[in-house]
Design a protein around this nucleic acid. Structure first.
Lengths: 274, 274
DNA sequence: AAGTGGTCTAGACCACTTG
DNA sequence: AAGTGGTCTAGACCACTTT
Protein backbone atom coordinates (compact mmCIF):
# COMPACT_ATOMS: atom_id res chain seq x y z
CA UNK A 1 0.00 0.00 0.00
CA UNK A 2 2.94 2.28 0.54
CA UNK A 3 3.88 4.11 -2.61
CA UNK A 4 7.51 5.20 -2.85
CA UNK A 5 6.59 8.01 -5.21
CA UNK A 6 4.80 9.61 -2.30
CA UNK A 7 7.62 11.49 -0.69
CA UNK A 8 6.84 15.13 -0.58
CA UNK A 9 7.00 15.26 3.21
CA UNK A 10 5.16 12.67 5.17
CA UNK A 11 3.24 13.72 8.19
CA UNK A 12 0.29 15.96 8.76
CA UNK A 13 -0.49 18.67 6.29
CA UNK A 14 -1.26 21.04 9.10
CA UNK A 15 0.43 21.04 12.47
CA UNK A 16 -2.80 21.49 14.39
CA UNK A 17 -2.04 25.18 13.98
CA UNK A 18 -3.00 26.76 17.24
CA UNK A 19 -0.55 29.46 16.21
CA UNK A 20 2.25 27.04 16.93
CA UNK A 21 3.22 26.95 13.28
CA UNK A 22 6.81 28.18 13.19
CA UNK A 23 7.09 28.64 9.45
CA UNK A 24 4.57 31.16 8.16
CA UNK A 25 4.45 29.54 4.73
CA UNK A 26 1.31 31.44 3.84
CA UNK A 27 -0.93 28.56 4.83
CA UNK A 28 -1.68 29.95 8.26
CA UNK A 29 -5.36 30.67 7.92
CA UNK A 30 -6.07 28.51 4.91
CA UNK A 31 -8.72 25.91 5.58
CA UNK A 32 -7.37 22.43 5.89
CA UNK A 33 -8.92 21.22 2.64
CA UNK A 34 -7.13 23.99 0.76
CA UNK A 35 -3.83 22.92 2.22
CA UNK A 36 -4.65 19.37 1.21
CA UNK A 37 -5.45 20.63 -2.26
CA UNK A 38 -2.07 22.28 -2.49
CA UNK A 39 -0.41 19.10 -1.35
CA UNK A 40 -2.29 17.17 -4.00
CA UNK A 41 -1.27 19.68 -6.64
CA UNK A 42 2.35 19.19 -5.68
CA UNK A 43 1.95 15.44 -5.94
CA UNK A 44 0.35 15.76 -9.35
CA UNK A 45 2.89 18.24 -10.68
CA UNK A 46 5.73 15.93 -9.70
CA UNK A 47 4.56 13.93 -12.67
CA UNK A 48 4.59 10.42 -11.23
CA UNK A 49 0.95 9.92 -12.10
CA UNK A 50 -0.38 10.12 -15.61
CA UNK A 51 -3.73 9.43 -17.20
CA UNK A 52 -2.93 5.72 -17.03
CA UNK A 53 -1.84 5.42 -13.43
CA UNK A 54 -4.26 6.24 -10.65
CA UNK A 55 -3.34 8.33 -7.64
CA UNK A 56 -3.28 6.50 -4.30
CA UNK A 57 -6.79 5.81 -3.09
CA UNK A 58 -8.70 8.43 -1.18
CA UNK A 59 -8.41 6.55 2.08
CA UNK A 60 -4.67 6.12 1.56
CA UNK A 61 -4.17 9.79 0.77
CA UNK A 62 -6.32 10.81 3.70
CA UNK A 63 -4.38 8.75 6.19
CA UNK A 64 -1.03 9.79 4.77
CA UNK A 65 -1.99 13.45 4.94
CA UNK A 66 -3.62 12.81 8.30
CA UNK A 67 -6.98 14.24 7.45
CA UNK A 68 -10.40 12.67 7.29
CA UNK A 69 -11.67 11.19 4.06
CA UNK A 70 -14.30 13.92 3.89
CA UNK A 71 -11.67 16.62 3.88
CA UNK A 72 -9.57 14.79 1.33
CA UNK A 73 -12.63 14.46 -0.88
CA UNK A 74 -13.39 18.15 -0.56
CA UNK A 75 -9.95 18.93 -1.94
CA UNK A 76 -10.26 16.40 -4.75
CA UNK A 77 -13.70 17.77 -5.58
CA UNK A 78 -12.19 21.14 -6.39
CA UNK A 79 -9.49 19.66 -8.59
CA UNK A 80 -12.12 17.66 -10.42
CA UNK A 81 -14.13 20.83 -11.01
CA UNK A 82 -11.03 22.41 -12.50
CA UNK A 83 -10.54 19.44 -14.82
CA UNK A 84 -7.23 18.61 -13.24
CA UNK A 85 -8.38 15.22 -11.98
CA UNK A 86 -11.10 12.80 -12.96
CA UNK A 87 -12.63 10.14 -10.76
CA UNK A 88 -13.65 6.75 -12.01
CA UNK A 89 -15.75 4.76 -9.64
CA UNK A 90 -14.23 1.41 -8.88
CA UNK A 91 -10.97 2.25 -10.62
CA UNK A 92 -9.41 5.27 -9.04
CA UNK A 93 -8.61 8.96 -9.46
CA UNK A 94 -6.52 10.04 -12.44
CA UNK A 95 -4.89 13.08 -13.90
CA UNK A 96 -7.44 14.31 -16.46
CA UNK A 97 -6.57 12.84 -19.85
CA UNK A 98 -6.41 14.95 -22.98
CA UNK A 99 -8.68 12.89 -25.16
CA UNK A 100 -10.87 14.11 -27.98
CA UNK A 101 -13.87 14.63 -25.78
CA UNK A 102 -11.96 17.03 -23.56
CA UNK A 103 -10.50 18.78 -26.57
CA UNK A 104 -13.92 19.36 -28.05
CA UNK A 105 -15.59 20.63 -24.96
CA UNK A 106 -12.76 22.65 -23.52
CA UNK A 107 -10.58 23.86 -26.37
CA UNK A 108 -12.37 23.71 -29.71
CA UNK A 109 -15.09 26.26 -30.10
CA UNK A 110 -15.79 26.43 -33.81
CA UNK A 111 -19.19 25.19 -34.92
CA UNK A 112 -20.99 25.19 -38.17
CA UNK A 113 -23.63 27.87 -38.28
CA UNK A 114 -27.17 26.58 -38.18
CA UNK A 115 -29.06 27.79 -41.15
CA UNK A 116 -32.53 28.96 -40.19
CA UNK A 117 -34.22 26.26 -42.21
CA UNK A 118 -31.59 23.65 -41.52
CA UNK A 119 -33.27 21.00 -39.49
CA UNK A 120 -30.39 18.62 -39.08
CA UNK A 121 -30.01 16.84 -35.77
CA UNK A 122 -28.54 19.72 -33.76
CA UNK A 123 -25.18 19.64 -35.52
CA UNK A 124 -23.40 17.31 -33.13
CA UNK A 125 -19.97 18.67 -32.31
CA UNK A 126 -17.75 17.81 -35.23
CA UNK A 127 -14.11 16.91 -34.80
CA UNK A 128 -11.93 18.65 -37.37
CA UNK A 129 -9.53 17.03 -39.80
CA UNK A 130 -6.09 18.44 -39.17
CA UNK A 131 -3.28 18.75 -41.67
CA UNK A 132 0.18 20.12 -40.96
CA UNK A 133 1.26 22.84 -43.38
CA UNK A 134 4.64 23.66 -41.94
CA UNK A 135 7.08 22.77 -39.19
CA UNK A 136 10.17 24.87 -38.57
CA UNK A 137 12.57 26.23 -36.01
CA UNK A 138 12.78 29.96 -35.57
CA UNK A 139 13.52 32.66 -33.03
CA UNK A 140 10.82 34.06 -30.77
CA UNK A 141 9.67 37.56 -31.59
CA UNK A 142 8.87 40.07 -28.88
CA UNK A 143 5.22 39.14 -28.43
CA UNK A 144 5.87 35.42 -28.40
CA UNK A 145 8.73 35.77 -25.96
CA UNK A 146 6.60 37.79 -23.58
CA UNK A 147 3.71 35.34 -23.82
CA UNK A 148 5.84 32.23 -23.35
CA UNK A 149 8.05 33.92 -20.75
CA UNK A 150 11.23 33.21 -22.64
CA UNK A 151 13.83 35.63 -23.96
CA UNK A 152 13.53 37.44 -27.24
CA UNK A 153 15.28 35.38 -29.88
CA UNK A 154 15.11 32.13 -27.95
CA UNK A 155 14.53 29.16 -30.25
CA UNK A 156 10.96 28.07 -30.87
CA UNK A 157 9.07 25.60 -32.98
CA UNK A 158 6.64 27.16 -35.41
CA UNK A 159 3.94 24.80 -36.60
CA UNK A 160 1.15 25.63 -39.02
CA UNK A 161 -1.97 23.53 -39.32
CA UNK A 162 -5.18 23.77 -41.23
CA UNK A 163 -8.38 22.44 -39.73
CA UNK A 164 -11.27 21.30 -41.87
CA UNK A 165 -14.88 20.53 -41.12
CA UNK A 166 -16.77 18.53 -43.72
CA UNK A 167 -13.95 19.01 -46.16
CA UNK A 168 -13.91 22.80 -45.93
CA UNK A 169 -10.86 24.51 -44.45
CA UNK A 170 -12.20 26.62 -41.60
CA UNK A 171 -9.24 27.39 -39.35
CA UNK A 172 -5.57 28.12 -39.81
CA UNK A 173 -3.57 27.53 -36.63
CA UNK A 174 -0.06 28.83 -36.02
CA UNK A 175 1.50 27.24 -32.95
CA UNK A 176 4.60 28.51 -31.20
CA UNK A 177 6.40 26.28 -28.70
CA UNK A 178 9.60 26.79 -26.79
CA UNK A 179 12.16 24.24 -27.96
CA UNK A 180 13.50 24.15 -24.40
CA UNK A 181 10.19 22.77 -23.18
CA UNK A 182 9.70 20.37 -26.08
CA UNK A 183 13.12 18.85 -26.59
CA UNK A 184 13.36 16.22 -29.30
CA UNK A 185 10.08 17.21 -30.88
CA UNK A 186 10.22 16.46 -34.58
CA UNK A 187 7.83 17.00 -37.42
CA UNK A 188 7.49 13.24 -37.71
CA UNK A 189 6.49 12.82 -34.08
CA UNK A 190 4.12 15.76 -34.36
CA UNK A 191 2.40 14.59 -37.51
CA UNK A 192 2.19 10.95 -36.46
CA UNK A 193 0.71 11.66 -33.05
CA UNK A 194 -2.05 9.30 -32.05
CA UNK A 195 -4.57 11.82 -30.78
CA UNK A 196 -4.83 15.54 -30.18
CA UNK A 197 -1.91 17.93 -29.93
CA UNK A 198 -2.49 18.39 -26.22
CA UNK A 199 -2.52 14.63 -25.72
CA UNK A 200 0.89 14.57 -27.39
CA UNK A 201 2.19 17.19 -24.97
CA UNK A 202 0.83 15.15 -22.10
CA UNK A 203 1.94 11.67 -23.01
CA UNK A 204 5.23 12.44 -24.76
CA UNK A 205 6.43 15.42 -22.74
CA UNK A 206 4.63 15.10 -19.42
CA UNK A 207 3.07 18.51 -19.91
CA UNK A 208 -0.63 18.74 -19.15
CA UNK A 209 -2.44 21.78 -20.49
CA UNK A 210 -4.89 22.78 -17.80
CA UNK A 211 -6.46 25.92 -19.15
CA UNK A 212 -6.05 28.65 -21.69
CA UNK A 213 -6.95 32.23 -22.28
CA UNK A 214 -8.05 33.54 -25.62
CA UNK A 215 -8.25 37.04 -27.00
CA UNK A 216 -10.25 37.35 -30.20
CA UNK A 217 -10.65 40.08 -32.76
CA UNK A 218 -11.79 40.70 -36.29
CA UNK A 219 -9.15 41.44 -38.89
CA UNK A 220 -8.66 41.48 -42.63
CA UNK A 221 -7.21 38.27 -44.02
CA UNK A 222 -3.66 38.54 -45.32
CA UNK A 223 -2.92 37.01 -48.69
CA UNK A 224 -1.55 33.78 -47.26
CA UNK A 225 -4.31 33.42 -44.68
CA UNK A 226 -6.92 34.15 -47.31
CA UNK A 227 -5.41 31.56 -49.62
CA UNK A 228 -5.58 28.81 -47.02
CA UNK A 229 -9.12 29.70 -46.02
CA UNK A 230 -10.34 30.09 -49.62
CA UNK A 231 -11.27 33.70 -49.07
CA UNK A 232 -10.47 36.85 -51.00
CA UNK A 233 -7.56 38.77 -49.52
CA UNK A 234 -8.81 41.38 -47.09
CA UNK A 235 -11.95 39.47 -46.17
CA UNK A 236 -12.95 39.72 -42.51
CA UNK A 237 -11.72 36.80 -40.43
CA UNK A 238 -11.58 36.12 -36.74
CA UNK A 239 -8.13 36.09 -35.24
CA UNK A 240 -7.84 34.29 -31.92
CA UNK A 241 -4.72 34.47 -29.79
CA UNK A 242 -4.47 31.66 -27.29
CA UNK A 243 -2.03 31.10 -24.49
CA UNK A 244 -2.23 27.60 -23.04
CA UNK A 245 -1.06 27.07 -19.46
CA UNK A 246 -0.05 24.20 -17.26
CA UNK A 247 0.47 23.93 -13.51
CA UNK A 248 1.45 27.14 -11.81
CA UNK A 249 0.14 29.10 -14.80
CA UNK A 250 3.30 28.25 -16.68
CA UNK A 251 2.86 29.03 -20.39
CA UNK A 252 3.11 26.05 -22.70
CA UNK A 253 1.93 27.10 -26.12
CA UNK A 254 1.13 30.31 -27.90
CA UNK A 255 -1.25 29.93 -30.80
CA UNK A 256 -2.88 32.25 -33.27
CA UNK A 257 -5.92 30.95 -35.09
CA UNK A 258 -7.51 32.49 -38.15
CA UNK A 259 -11.11 31.46 -38.60
CA UNK A 260 -13.25 31.68 -41.71
CA UNK A 261 -16.59 32.65 -40.22
CA UNK A 262 -18.55 32.61 -43.45
CA UNK A 263 -20.39 29.48 -42.40
CA UNK A 264 -19.03 28.84 -38.90
CA UNK A 265 -19.14 30.55 -35.53
CA UNK A 266 -16.78 30.87 -32.61
CA UNK A 267 -18.96 29.62 -29.76
CA UNK A 268 -18.65 30.62 -26.15
CA UNK A 269 -20.78 29.63 -23.20
CA UNK A 270 -21.15 32.11 -20.38
CA UNK A 271 -21.53 29.80 -17.39
CA UNK A 272 -22.46 26.26 -18.15
CA UNK A 273 -25.68 24.78 -16.99
CA UNK A 274 -26.28 22.02 -14.50
CA UNK B 1 -39.22 29.53 11.81
CA UNK B 2 -41.99 28.28 9.58
CA UNK B 3 -42.09 30.15 6.33
CA UNK B 4 -45.48 30.19 4.60
CA UNK B 5 -43.84 30.68 1.23
CA UNK B 6 -42.46 27.18 1.61
CA UNK B 7 -45.31 25.16 0.27
CA UNK B 8 -44.15 23.11 -2.63
CA UNK B 9 -45.02 19.85 -0.92
CA UNK B 10 -43.94 19.31 2.62
CA UNK B 11 -42.52 16.00 3.53
CA UNK B 12 -39.53 14.07 2.44
CA UNK B 13 -38.00 14.74 -0.93
CA UNK B 14 -37.54 11.05 -1.42
CA UNK B 15 -39.77 8.38 -0.04
CA UNK B 16 -36.94 6.20 1.15
CA UNK B 17 -37.17 4.72 -2.33
CA UNK B 18 -36.65 1.04 -1.90
CA UNK B 19 -38.51 0.79 -5.16
CA UNK B 20 -41.67 1.68 -3.27
CA UNK B 21 -41.93 4.95 -5.16
CA UNK B 22 -45.31 4.79 -6.89
CA UNK B 23 -44.86 7.76 -9.20
CA UNK B 24 -41.88 7.32 -11.52
CA UNK B 25 -41.31 11.06 -11.81
CA UNK B 26 -37.89 10.50 -13.30
CA UNK B 27 -36.17 10.88 -9.94
CA UNK B 28 -35.91 7.17 -9.33
CA UNK B 29 -32.17 6.72 -9.42
CA UNK B 30 -31.16 10.31 -8.88
CA UNK B 31 -29.00 10.75 -5.81
CA UNK B 32 -30.77 12.42 -2.97
CA UNK B 33 -28.77 15.62 -3.19
CA UNK B 34 -29.83 16.01 -6.83
CA UNK B 35 -33.45 15.70 -5.85
CA UNK B 36 -32.85 18.28 -3.15
CA UNK B 37 -31.24 20.50 -5.75
CA UNK B 38 -34.32 20.25 -7.95
CA UNK B 39 -36.52 21.08 -4.98
CA UNK B 40 -34.38 24.12 -4.28
CA UNK B 41 -34.57 25.20 -7.90
CA UNK B 42 -38.34 25.03 -7.74
CA UNK B 43 -38.32 27.14 -4.58
CA UNK B 44 -36.06 29.69 -6.21
CA UNK B 45 -37.98 29.84 -9.46
CA UNK B 46 -41.20 30.48 -7.58
CA UNK B 47 -39.71 33.93 -7.08
CA UNK B 48 -40.42 34.48 -3.40
CA UNK B 49 -36.77 35.07 -2.68
CA UNK B 50 -34.75 37.83 -4.28
CA UNK B 51 -31.25 39.15 -3.81
CA UNK B 52 -32.48 40.99 -0.73
CA UNK B 53 -34.28 38.19 1.08
CA UNK B 54 -32.36 35.14 2.19
CA UNK B 55 -33.62 31.62 1.71
CA UNK B 56 -34.53 29.72 4.86
CA UNK B 57 -31.43 28.62 6.73
CA UNK B 58 -29.66 25.44 5.79
CA UNK B 59 -30.79 23.65 8.91
CA UNK B 60 -34.38 24.74 8.30
CA UNK B 61 -34.31 23.59 4.69
CA UNK B 62 -32.66 20.34 5.67
CA UNK B 63 -35.27 19.49 8.25
CA UNK B 64 -38.16 20.54 6.01
CA UNK B 65 -36.84 18.42 3.17
CA UNK B 66 -35.99 15.70 5.65
CA UNK B 67 -32.39 15.31 4.68
CA UNK B 68 -29.19 15.86 6.61
CA UNK B 69 -27.49 19.22 6.56
CA UNK B 70 -24.59 17.69 4.67
CA UNK B 71 -26.84 16.60 1.84
CA UNK B 72 -28.59 19.95 1.77
CA UNK B 73 -25.21 21.66 1.58
CA UNK B 74 -24.13 19.43 -1.27
CA UNK B 75 -27.13 20.59 -3.28
CA UNK B 76 -26.55 24.23 -2.42
CA UNK B 77 -22.87 23.86 -3.31
CA UNK B 78 -23.79 23.01 -6.87
CA UNK B 79 -26.16 25.93 -7.21
CA UNK B 80 -23.47 28.23 -5.87
CA UNK B 81 -21.05 26.87 -8.46
CA UNK B 82 -23.58 27.68 -11.15
CA UNK B 83 -23.94 31.24 -9.83
CA UNK B 84 -27.57 30.67 -9.02
CA UNK B 85 -27.08 31.21 -5.28
CA UNK B 86 -24.51 32.99 -3.16
CA UNK B 87 -23.76 32.27 0.47
CA UNK B 88 -22.89 34.96 2.96
CA UNK B 89 -21.53 33.70 6.21
CA UNK B 90 -23.52 34.93 9.15
CA UNK B 91 -26.27 36.37 6.93
CA UNK B 92 -27.78 33.66 4.80
CA UNK B 93 -28.05 32.24 1.31
CA UNK B 94 -29.40 34.47 -1.45
CA UNK B 95 -30.34 34.34 -5.09
CA UNK B 96 -27.22 35.60 -6.86
CA UNK B 97 -27.56 39.35 -7.43
CA UNK B 98 -26.87 40.94 -10.79
CA UNK B 99 -24.45 43.58 -9.65
CA UNK B 100 -21.64 45.13 -11.63
CA UNK B 101 -19.09 42.63 -10.41
CA UNK B 102 -21.12 39.75 -11.76
CA UNK B 103 -21.76 41.57 -15.01
CA UNK B 104 -18.06 42.15 -15.53
CA UNK B 105 -16.90 38.67 -14.78
CA UNK B 106 -19.71 36.74 -16.38
CA UNK B 107 -21.15 38.79 -19.21
CA UNK B 108 -18.77 41.51 -20.35
CA UNK B 109 -15.74 40.23 -22.17
CA UNK B 110 -14.30 43.22 -23.97
CA UNK B 111 -10.92 44.41 -22.81
CA UNK B 112 -8.51 46.98 -24.01
CA UNK B 113 -5.61 45.38 -25.83
CA UNK B 114 -2.33 45.52 -23.99
CA UNK B 115 0.25 47.23 -26.12
CA UNK B 116 3.57 45.43 -25.99
CA UNK B 117 5.30 48.34 -24.32
CA UNK B 118 2.30 49.34 -22.26
CA UNK B 119 3.28 48.78 -18.68
CA UNK B 120 0.14 49.95 -17.00
CA UNK B 121 -1.10 48.05 -13.96
CA UNK B 122 -2.61 45.05 -15.75
CA UNK B 123 -5.57 46.99 -17.17
CA UNK B 124 -8.04 46.38 -14.37
CA UNK B 125 -11.40 45.43 -15.80
CA UNK B 126 -13.08 48.61 -16.93
CA UNK B 127 -16.81 49.10 -16.69
CA UNK B 128 -18.24 50.66 -19.84
CA UNK B 129 -20.28 53.84 -20.12
CA UNK B 130 -23.59 52.96 -21.70
CA UNK B 131 -25.80 55.26 -23.74
CA UNK B 132 -29.14 54.36 -25.25
CA UNK B 133 -29.42 55.14 -28.95
CA UNK B 134 -32.90 53.90 -29.63
CA UNK B 135 -35.91 52.26 -28.02
CA UNK B 136 -38.80 51.02 -30.10
CA UNK B 137 -41.50 48.42 -30.51
CA UNK B 138 -41.38 46.16 -33.51
CA UNK B 139 -42.30 42.70 -34.73
CA UNK B 140 -39.94 39.75 -34.29
CA UNK B 141 -38.28 38.52 -37.43
CA UNK B 142 -37.75 34.83 -38.10
CA UNK B 143 -34.38 34.52 -36.36
CA UNK B 144 -35.45 36.49 -33.31
CA UNK B 145 -38.67 34.54 -32.99
CA UNK B 146 -36.84 31.24 -33.12
CA UNK B 147 -34.27 32.36 -30.59
CA UNK B 148 -36.77 33.81 -28.14
CA UNK B 149 -39.24 30.98 -28.75
CA UNK B 150 -42.05 33.29 -29.69
CA UNK B 151 -44.05 33.48 -32.91
CA UNK B 152 -42.92 35.31 -35.99
CA UNK B 153 -44.33 38.82 -35.87
CA UNK B 154 -44.90 38.82 -32.12
CA UNK B 155 -44.24 42.24 -30.59
CA UNK B 156 -40.74 42.91 -29.25
CA UNK B 157 -38.77 45.76 -27.80
CA UNK B 158 -35.75 46.75 -29.83
CA UNK B 159 -33.15 48.66 -27.88
CA UNK B 160 -29.84 49.98 -29.19
CA UNK B 161 -26.99 50.96 -26.92
CA UNK B 162 -23.46 52.11 -27.42
CA UNK B 163 -20.79 51.13 -24.92
CA UNK B 164 -17.68 53.21 -24.41
CA UNK B 165 -14.41 52.56 -22.68
CA UNK B 166 -12.26 55.58 -21.86
CA UNK B 167 -14.48 57.72 -24.02
CA UNK B 168 -14.14 55.59 -27.14
CA UNK B 169 -17.21 53.81 -28.48
CA UNK B 170 -16.23 50.15 -28.63
CA UNK B 171 -19.48 48.19 -28.79
CA UNK B 172 -22.89 48.62 -30.37
CA UNK B 173 -25.52 46.44 -28.71
CA UNK B 174 -28.90 45.65 -30.22
CA UNK B 175 -31.22 44.04 -27.68
CA UNK B 176 -34.45 42.25 -28.52
CA UNK B 177 -36.94 41.47 -25.77
CA UNK B 178 -40.38 39.94 -25.92
CA UNK B 179 -42.93 42.53 -24.81
CA UNK B 180 -44.94 39.70 -23.29
CA UNK B 181 -42.11 39.00 -20.87
CA UNK B 182 -41.33 42.64 -20.12
CA UNK B 183 -44.75 44.23 -19.76
CA UNK B 184 -44.73 47.89 -18.86
CA UNK B 185 -41.12 48.37 -19.85
CA UNK B 186 -40.60 51.92 -21.03
CA UNK B 187 -37.66 53.80 -22.40
CA UNK B 188 -37.68 55.93 -19.27
CA UNK B 189 -37.47 52.93 -16.95
CA UNK B 190 -34.79 51.40 -19.11
CA UNK B 191 -32.62 54.48 -19.29
CA UNK B 192 -33.04 55.44 -15.65
CA UNK B 193 -32.20 52.00 -14.32
CA UNK B 194 -29.97 52.05 -11.28
CA UNK B 195 -27.48 49.38 -12.30
CA UNK B 196 -26.93 46.94 -15.14
CA UNK B 197 -29.55 45.84 -17.62
CA UNK B 198 -29.68 42.38 -16.09
CA UNK B 199 -30.16 43.87 -12.65
CA UNK B 200 -33.16 45.71 -14.08
CA UNK B 201 -34.60 42.46 -15.40
CA UNK B 202 -34.07 40.91 -12.00
CA UNK B 203 -35.37 43.60 -9.70
CA UNK B 204 -38.15 45.05 -11.84
CA UNK B 205 -39.36 41.95 -13.64
CA UNK B 206 -38.31 39.10 -11.40
CA UNK B 207 -36.29 37.59 -14.24
CA UNK B 208 -32.83 36.40 -13.32
CA UNK B 209 -30.45 35.78 -16.21
CA UNK B 210 -28.48 32.69 -15.26
CA UNK B 211 -26.34 32.05 -18.29
CA UNK B 212 -25.93 32.88 -21.94
CA UNK B 213 -24.55 31.44 -25.09
CA UNK B 214 -22.66 33.50 -27.60
CA UNK B 215 -21.79 32.84 -31.22
CA UNK B 216 -19.18 35.18 -32.65
CA UNK B 217 -17.97 35.92 -36.14
CA UNK B 218 -16.10 38.49 -38.15
CA UNK B 219 -18.06 40.62 -40.55
CA UNK B 220 -17.81 43.83 -42.51
CA UNK B 221 -19.30 46.84 -40.74
CA UNK B 222 -22.48 48.19 -42.29
CA UNK B 223 -22.70 51.93 -42.75
CA UNK B 224 -24.68 52.53 -39.59
CA UNK B 225 -22.55 50.19 -37.48
CA UNK B 226 -19.41 51.77 -38.87
CA UNK B 227 -20.70 55.23 -38.10
CA UNK B 228 -21.37 54.41 -34.45
CA UNK B 229 -18.01 52.69 -34.02
CA UNK B 230 -16.06 55.41 -35.86
CA UNK B 231 -14.86 53.00 -38.50
CA UNK B 232 -14.91 53.13 -42.27
CA UNK B 233 -17.82 51.22 -43.77
CA UNK B 234 -16.80 47.66 -44.54
CA UNK B 235 -14.12 47.51 -41.86
CA UNK B 236 -13.86 44.14 -40.09
CA UNK B 237 -15.80 44.00 -36.84
CA UNK B 238 -16.73 41.22 -34.49
CA UNK B 239 -20.39 40.35 -34.43
CA UNK B 240 -21.54 38.49 -31.34
CA UNK B 241 -24.99 36.94 -31.08
CA UNK B 242 -26.03 36.27 -27.51
CA UNK B 243 -29.02 34.46 -26.17
CA UNK B 244 -29.51 34.99 -22.43
CA UNK B 245 -31.40 32.35 -20.49
CA UNK B 246 -33.14 32.06 -17.16
CA UNK B 247 -34.42 29.05 -15.22
CA UNK B 248 -35.33 26.07 -17.33
CA UNK B 249 -33.27 27.47 -20.19
CA UNK B 250 -36.06 29.86 -21.00
CA UNK B 251 -34.82 32.57 -23.37
CA UNK B 252 -34.95 36.10 -22.01
CA UNK B 253 -33.00 38.34 -24.32
CA UNK B 254 -31.50 38.12 -27.77
CA UNK B 255 -28.66 40.51 -28.39
CA UNK B 256 -26.33 41.25 -31.24
CA UNK B 257 -23.14 43.12 -30.41
CA UNK B 258 -20.82 44.75 -32.89
CA UNK B 259 -17.34 45.26 -31.52
CA UNK B 260 -14.63 47.54 -32.80
CA UNK B 261 -11.56 45.40 -32.24
CA UNK B 262 -9.02 47.95 -33.38
CA UNK B 263 -7.79 48.43 -29.84
CA UNK B 264 -9.89 45.95 -27.86
CA UNK B 265 -10.24 42.19 -27.66
CA UNK B 266 -13.08 39.82 -26.98
CA UNK B 267 -11.67 37.79 -24.10
CA UNK B 268 -12.56 34.24 -23.27
CA UNK B 269 -11.18 31.99 -20.57
CA UNK B 270 -11.10 28.26 -21.25
CA UNK B 271 -11.57 26.87 -17.75
CA UNK B 272 -10.94 29.24 -14.93
CA UNK B 273 -8.16 28.64 -12.47
CA UNK B 274 -8.41 27.86 -8.79
C1' DA C 1 -26.39 35.49 22.95
C1' DA C 2 -28.42 33.64 19.09
C1' DG C 3 -28.48 32.59 14.31
C1' DT C 4 -26.16 32.07 10.02
C1' DG C 5 -22.86 29.68 6.96
C1' DG C 6 -17.90 27.13 6.95
C1' DT C 7 -14.93 23.36 8.33
C1' DC C 8 -13.84 18.82 9.93
C1' DT C 9 -14.61 14.38 11.62
C1' DA C 10 -16.05 9.30 11.86
C1' DG C 11 -18.56 5.92 10.24
C1' DA C 12 -22.18 3.35 7.58
C1' DC C 13 -23.66 1.80 3.41
C1' DC C 14 -24.03 1.65 -1.83
C1' DA C 15 -22.21 1.07 -6.77
C1' DC C 16 -18.80 -0.15 -9.72
C1' DT C 17 -14.48 -2.68 -11.24
C1' DT C 18 -11.21 -6.21 -10.90
C1' DG C 19 -9.23 -10.64 -9.73
C1' DA D 1 -14.09 -11.00 -2.22
C1' DA D 2 -11.56 -6.96 -2.03
C1' DG D 3 -10.68 -2.34 -3.41
C1' DT D 4 -12.17 1.87 -5.42
C1' DG D 5 -15.06 6.03 -5.58
C1' DG D 6 -20.16 7.87 -4.39
C1' DT D 7 -23.76 9.01 -1.07
C1' DC D 8 -25.65 10.08 3.33
C1' DT D 9 -25.76 10.84 8.09
C1' DA D 10 -24.98 13.05 12.82
C1' DG D 11 -22.57 15.89 15.41
C1' DA D 12 -18.78 19.05 17.04
C1' DC D 13 -16.70 23.23 16.61
C1' DC D 14 -15.33 27.72 14.27
C1' DA D 15 -16.16 32.45 12.02
C1' DC D 16 -19.12 35.97 11.01
C1' DT D 17 -23.33 39.00 11.59
C1' DT D 18 -26.98 40.82 14.03
C1' DT D 19 -29.66 41.90 18.19
Amino acid sequence: MYDPTLRWSNGPVKTKSKSESKTPSGDESLPLYRQVKKALQKIIEAGHYGPGKPLPSESALASQLQVSVGTLRHAVDELVHEHVLVRRQGKGTFVAPHNRARFMFQFFHVERRQDPEDNEPTSEQEFPDIACLGFSRDKADAGEARALRIKLGDPVFRIDNKLSLRGKVVVLDRLVLSTAMFRNLTEKRFVERASTVYALYQTDFGITVLRAQERARASAASKVVAAVLSLPAGAPVMEVHRLALTFGDKPVEYRVSFINTQAHDYVSVLSKKA
